[in-house]
Structure formats: C-alpha cells, structure tokens
Design a binder for these strands. Structure first.
Length: 478
RNA sequence: CGGGGUGUAGCGCAGUUGGUAGCGCACCGCGUUUGGGACGCGGGGGUCCGCGGUUCGAGUCCGCGCACCCCGACCA
C-alpha cells in the first residue's frame, strides 16, 4: 500500500480496477501469465457468495458432487458446436508420469462432457429423473487476454448440470436458475441485473438456448454475471443419456447447465466501487463492521479497549474486525478500510467512553454525511438496521445509475451515440448479419433479449429496418 | 495474434559523456504521537529480467531471447 491516492475512475477505469483489487488485498498476480492468486480477503468474499448461492441450490433440490478435472480429449469431439466453441481455448495434458499418454486429457473448461458421460451411466428410468447436480470447481480456459477476476486462465465457479424427462421441465429448470441468480445478485450483492436470452451468436457452444443476467458496471459497460443454458437434447444425444419412460420406451433426456464464477467478484467491484476504493454489500462483505479504537496514551487505551470489548460482545451476530494495530493512526485506518470496502466503521475513543456512545461511519456516504452517533445501549439492533439501510441504499444507487444509462434508440445514429456511454435498447430483426454489422461498426454487442416483453408488440429493426418482433440491448461489454 | 509500454530493494521510481547503485514508501529497533492518510533518530534489504557481444571496465552501448502490463480481435 505504497501509494496514497487511487487512480480516479474517470481518469483510467482499468487502472482503478486493478489498483482497487491489489490494494484491497483481494488478489495478486501469479508467476503464470493470466493466472491469479485469490487472497484471503477475496476468497472470503467468494465463500460468502458461495454460501448464498449454495443454500439456494439446496433449497431447490440440487445436490453437490465433484467430477474429475481431467477429461478425455475425445469427449470434446462428440458435440459439434461444443468442440468448435472450446477447441481454441483448451489446455491439454499429453504426458503423465513421464510417459506420453495414449489419449490426451483436457483440463476441463466446463464439465458438460464428462458429466454427460456419467449421467448416461446413472440414468436408466424416468424414476431417476430429474437429476439435479451441482459442482463447485475450478476450470481452465486458455484466454488471449486476461484481467483479474474478469477473465483468467483458471477460474473458480459452480456449474449446475441437470437432466429431465421433458423439454418443458428442462426449460423450467433453466429459468428457475436464472431467477435464482437474479435473486442472489439483487438481494445479496446489490447488483441490479437484467434477465434475458442470448442471441444465437452469443449463446453457449452446444446450447439450444442461453439465458443470462446482465449487469452494468461503473463505466456503463455490461458484464454477463451468470448464465443458464437450456441444452435441449444436444448433449443427451452426444453422450447417449437415455431413460425408459412409463410406456417402456427409450427417450433422450433434456439437460441444462448453469454457472456463476469468481467473475462475479469483478461485477461487485465495478458496480459499487468509487474513487475511495471498494464498497462491499453488507450481506456478503467479509467484514461487515470494522471497529477503530482511538486513544492518546496507555491509560486511555485500556479504557477504550474495555469499551471495544463490550461493543464487540454485542455484535456477535455480525462479521466484525477490531483494528487494534498500535502503530497506525486512526485516520490511516479509516482510509484503509474504506479502500477495502467495509460497509460500516465504528470509531470508539475517550469521548465515547465518557458519553456511552460510538461514532458510526457509512462506507456508502463518504465523510461527515455518513457519520452518526450511536448509543452503546442496544447496539446490535442499531448496527443491524444500519447495515440493512446501507444494503438497500447501494442497490438503489446502482439501479438508478443503470437506469439512467439505458436509452431507447429510435434509429441507428442514436444507437451509435448511446453505446458510446451506456446501453441502447432497440428493435432487432433477429438476423446474425445485422448483429455482426452493429458489432463491427460500434463495438457494441447484443447483451440479451429481455424476458419481460409484450408478445404483441413489434417494430422495425434498428439496422436493416425489416420487421422486428423483439427488443434487445446493445452495449460494449467485458 | 497485431499495436504500445515496462523490466534496477517488497512497491513506485531515478541512475548524466560507460567508472563498481540511489531516492520515496513499505519493513525492523527506540522514542514522541494517535477523533480523517503522524514525526524524529538509527537500521536491514540488490542475480540491475536472461544469454551473448563490445570494452581495462556495462544498470548504462549492441544483438538475441523471456516475462509482465495496457489497448484491439476472441471469451464466464
């Protein structure tokens, strides 16, 4: 933490992003290009994300399992689109124990293939369905250009894989998970997201349909924060996942897969961070409260620390950090914990010991505006209420920012203007050509076709002017 | 894979016409400090990215590598 000032977001968003992550001590670069070390502070945030997602998966009937990281290379050749999509970014093991392998092993970029193979062994009857499995795992994709959390060669995620007896049920599952992701993003991470379906060219390699939640970052670029795929029978046919229905007839299953990765941490950083650093939503922040004791001498110190102990005992229900480092001044600690995004800071000094008070400072309201004096009595409920307020305020601010930066495009010129600094919503005819042209000419890609559209409406495609039955978002994206 | 940039202490950097490496922060010790980024004194720490060349002598000049970062094309 050598430098005092962070690069302001307006000056260089990318520098700001990297500095925040490194200085908040969430992650570090590793000796391998494109790989990162997730440090305890970043990993704790991930654990909190995991916890919130995992309990939602369990509540909807899913169970966790673990599949191998090494997958026979031939598996990737069984589904045509899947090979094409992933071939360029596979890492392959060719030597094991000093010997050339008979068949190279791919380090999983995602596990549809091996899980499909296993499902075909496990599923015999309609009574085995639905099969609802999730795994928490790391995967490797050999990316050209990498960025901390957003795109690294190796990343951590969860991948859910399910098999169903009917198309309708598989689709229902796909959408159930999409809702689950949106609920998590909005209510735990305070990241407002838009649910939608991806265009043909943006969908997952091997999927029939890909749904996503899309979030707007602080520079107005879009980030796909979670995806849910309706795989149809593509993988069932490739891996022979079949069951006997109640008429004793063999049927192919319908499968789904869905994932949220450590990329979501990048989404949190860029949704909430400001020029003072990170700002973490209370519900998943590693520390919800940091206590900074203030004193001038040993005598004051012992009195203050006694109060700190008493306060800490009252806050057992929260994740609390007492910053009792003696070599640093309170002012330094304020800046450091603001940089690290702790939602609420409690300052306790001699005056508070006297007056039976504590000074509370909100991370989401910098300076004096965010400071209030609390009584030491009944502190737990007061802190709980403040954290709820902060959580709600963060969601509100992020939602307002997003909404203020989405504009309807009446014509192509408007679209070009809008995507320079925001998202454009527009009619789209659905053709790959229009999409490709727009991308080429504006660098904006289609994000998703939002789900909440009136079926009866239609208009003219923003690019070619032909009849269009759907609205879609265009923006630059991570 | 194209374009740009950078490799010198943990981090950020300086290093002149080539002469045997320094500054700030961080770190360690002692003391004074502590309600919005404290200060003094003392101290430890170097494969100058690597290899080769020129030279009496290379952090510095030349050549070849390598790595990383940033910007594009591709992607969770």
């Amino acid at each position: 933490m050598a430098d005092e000032k962070l690069t302001p977001r307006s000056e260089n968003y990318s520098d700001w992003y990297n500095q925040v992550i490194l200085r908040a001590d969430m992650a570090d670069y590793s000796p391998v290009r494109g790989c990162m070390v997730i440090k305890p502070y970043g990993w704790t945030l991930w654990e909190n994300i995991q916890h919130e997602l995992d309990r939602r998966f369990k509540a909807t009937g899913h169970v966790n399992a673990a599949f191998p990281m090494l997958i026979p290379k031939s598996f990737f050749e069984k589904e045509k689109d899947h090979v094409e999509g992933f071939a360029p970014e596979l890492a392959v093991v060719t030597i094991g124990g000093g010997q050339e392998l008979e068949e190279p092993l791919v380090i999983r970029p995602t596990s549809e293939t091996i899980i499909g193979y296993m499902f075909s062994k496990w599923i015999k009857s309609y009574r085995d369905l639905p099969l609802l499995i999730n795994q928490w795992a790391n995967v490797v994709r050999w990316e050209m250009r990498t960025r901390l959390f957003l795109r690294t060669l190796e990343f951590y995620w969860q991948e859910g894989h399910t098999a169903h007896s009917s198309e309708a049920e598989a689709k229902e599952e796909t959408l159930r998970i999409l809702d689950l992701y949106a609920d998590f993003a909005i209510n735990e991470a305070a990241v407002p997201v838009i649910k939608g379906i991806k265009s043909e060219s943006e969908k997952f390699a091997g999927a029939m349909e890909t749904y996503s939640i899309e979030a707007m970052m602080g520079d107005t670029k879009a980030l796909q924060a979670g995806t849910s795929h309706h795989l149809g029978q593509n993988f069932a046919k490739a891996f022979d996942i079949k069951y006997l229905d109640n008429n004793n007839e063999l049927q192919y299953c319908w499968t789904t897969s869905w994932g949220v990765s450590t990329r979501f941490i990048g989404a949190i950083v860029m949704t909430h961070g400001d020029d003072n650093g990170l700002m973490l939503p209370p519900r998943i922040a590693p520390y919800q409260v940091v206590i900074v004791p203030i004193y001038k001498n040993d005598e004051e110190r012992s009195r203050v620390m006694e109060t700190v102990q008493n306060v800490t005992r009252q806050l057992e229900a929260f994740r609390v950090k007492v910053d009792d480092r003696t070599e640093l001044t309170p002012g330094f600690k304020y800046h450091e914990w603001e940089l690290r995004g702790v939602p609420l800071r409690l300052e306790i000094g001699p005056k508070d010991v006297e007056k039976n008070s504590v000074m509370a400072a909100r991370r989401d309201m910098p300076g004096k505006a965010g400071k209030t004096i609390l009584s030491q009595e009944n502190l737990g409920p007061q802190v709980g209420a403040l954290l709820d307020t902060i959580q709600a305020a963060m969601l509100k601010r992020a939602t307002e920012f997003r909404d203020a930066n989405i504009h309807w495009a009446n014509n192509y010129d408007e679209l070009k203007q809008i995507v320079e600094n925001g998202w454009a919503e527009a009619w789209w005819c659905g053709s790959r050509e229009c999409e490709a042209k727009i991308k080429e000419e504006t660098k904006a890609t289609t994000r998703c076709i939002p789900l909440n559209q009136e079926n009866s409406e239609h208009g003219k495609c923003i690019y070619c002017g032909n009849d269009a039955q759907q609205k879609i978002y265009f923006s630059k994206a991570y």
